[in-house]
Design a protein around this nucleic acid. Structure first.
Lengths: 145, 145
DNA sequence: TTTGGTGCAAAGCGTTTGCACCCGC
DNA sequence: GCGGGTGCAAACGCTTTGCACCAAA
């Protein structure tokens, strides 16, 4: 997702384009393809607009998420991680625990399960499928140690 | 998993079988097949042993988890949920957001992905696959409202 | 008797919120 | 100028921890 599309969404929703929001969006775009914690986003945003507050970060991450501009990923008990949405498709991720890089896995397990779920009469509202580990680069770094 | 096997594991690991631990295990066995939050486990344990402290619950849930006696499930931002391990097989769950009942889904998406992952040279360390929604019962209750 | 387990209270962490002020539109 | 956005500080919910006492083995 690029700045033009994001500004479009903001305009449509009547959201103001404040300096802080511009800074946050810039950070997210710069780190496209990586997942970032709220704290990382906070620190990098402060580099661009030093007076930005942590609560501003959280408030905007929430807005960005419900505007489908970013994904929020929550891994077992850890702090939530955020990343730009790539397009409007449904997908899952492989996330590197070392460098935070995430790679889209164009596979959703629900497809293979739909018949079983129907048979059991479940109403699905939500699902989680994420893979964690080390990417090709970080794996190699580890083995050198 | 039954009390006999759990006591075996405790003995092997040199863990003491305190009154509090017995109470916690009883609760977990009574609610086998359901997922419980730490708070629910706390309240129900207090019914059996009223002076049990919340920190005792957390400390023991951690021990039980690393002894592979219980599963810890963390759903987007919510409090963690716990349940007895059924056997030593790897599986995932459908979890009802209303009654907390969980049903084992004997399907792991990793099987369908192994070739793709190898090709990409990922080293997998962890994965999450959980389905959330309403079970047959709770779905019906909802529609009556 | 020894060592690990407990209760208590306090702090930790990530996140959210109430309020007064501020600034984009 | 209006109404949404911000900074600040305080509180939130869940969880963890340090310490002195206690009780299972």
């Amino acid at each position: 997702m690029d700045i033009v599309k994001i500004e479009e969404i903001f305009k449509k929703s009547g959201l103001k384009l404040t300096v802080q929001r511009k800074a946050i969006i810039e950070v997210l775009i710069n780190f496209n393809g990586h997942v970032l914690t709220a704290e990382q986003i906070y620190k990098k945003t402060k580099e661009k607009h030093p007076t930005t507050n942590f609560s501003t970060i959280y408030r905007n991450l929430e807005i960005l998420e419900s505007s489908n501009i970013i994904h929020k990923i929550t891994m077992k008990g850890e702090a939530a991680k955020y990343q730009l949405v790539n397009d409007d498709k449904h997908y899952h991720h492989f996330i590197c625990k070392d460098c935070g890089k995430s790679e889209i896995i164009d596979f959703c397990p629900l497809r293979s399960l739909s018949t079983e779920l129907k048979r059991k009469n479940f109403v699905l509202t939500d699902h989680c499928f994420e893979l964690y580990g080390y990417c090709n680069n970080c794996k190699d770094n580890k083995s050198e140690v």
